[in-house]
Design a protein around this nucleic acid. Structure first.
Lengths: 135, 135
DNA sequence: GTCAGTGCAAACCCTTTGCAGAAAG
DNA sequence: CTTTCTGCAAAGGGTTTGCACTGAC
């Protein structure tokens, strides 16, 4: 994603594009991926950017509140931030903790239960947990 | 669940049924439900049981390792322990953080993607996120 | 100038660990 | 008796908060 498009995206979502926010966005939005705050901090350090830990956390919180990224709670140890905000499904590799996307089109659900009274559906997500063969 | 059946269940899973473990099991296995460690501690205190925080955590860890309960990571703030260990699906009420079960039979998935090479399926779980209507 | 964003460290919360004492087989 | 479990307090790891400083409009 080009810097120009990142600036546009942040503004579209009502987020002031400060240099630190653009740096975080440039890493996370580079491709469809799932990164933890920690992984993002490592990547920032790797490219010589100086963004403090707290700012990364604050930025990710703002991004997910504004719908720029999607927060995932798969592992109770840490949150993951998904650069793909559309509804989609995931493989979760339990041995490595690695998440990967499954396009919505590759899963079809033919029946669902009625929703609890007074609620409306926000999303339906399928998680396929996999492990290394023959463990 | 009767105390006698709890003792049996713990033994079946190779867990020594100490009094603290039986107390924790009695609360969690009372009905199909999802409780956090904290909620269990509150309930123990409420009924006047004296089980330390660390012991509750250690006990829950042992229970989930031995398949007596199922550990769920829905909320990154805390783990939930599910008294239903069979494969099943969940509603997640995003406003309240409340989880509820969906029997496996009420969801049918008609197509799934191929698994990543070298992996085997551990489980397929559907999470339906719902929110209060007209928020 | 004013208001929002940043950096740092300290605070926080849930969970795990270490160790001495207690209990189970 | 030996091994395992318990309780407490302290450590741990990820995340959030408070506050002075900096920077944007």
């Amino acid at each position: 994603m080009l810097r120009k498009d990142i600036l546009k995206k942040l503004k579209q979502h009502g987020v002031l594009p400060t240099s630190q926010r653009v740096e975080v966005a440039a890493i996370l939005l580079a491709r469809p991926q799932h990164l933890s705050a920690d992984q993002i901090i490592d990547k920032l350090n790797g490219r010589g950017s100086r963004v403090s830990k707290a700012t990364v956390y604050n930025t990710l919180k703002i991004f997910s509140e504004q719908g720029i990224v999607k927060e995932l709670s798969v592992d109770s140890r840490c949150k993951f931030y998904d650069s793909t905000t559309d509804s989609h499904h995931h493989f979760y590799h339990v041995d490595s903790g690695q998440l990967s996307d499954i396009p919505e089109s590759q899963v079809s659900i033919s029946s669902l239960p009625p929703l609890p009274t007074g609620t409306e559906q926000e999303s339906v997500e399928v998680m396929i947990r996999v492990r290394d063969k023959g463990r």
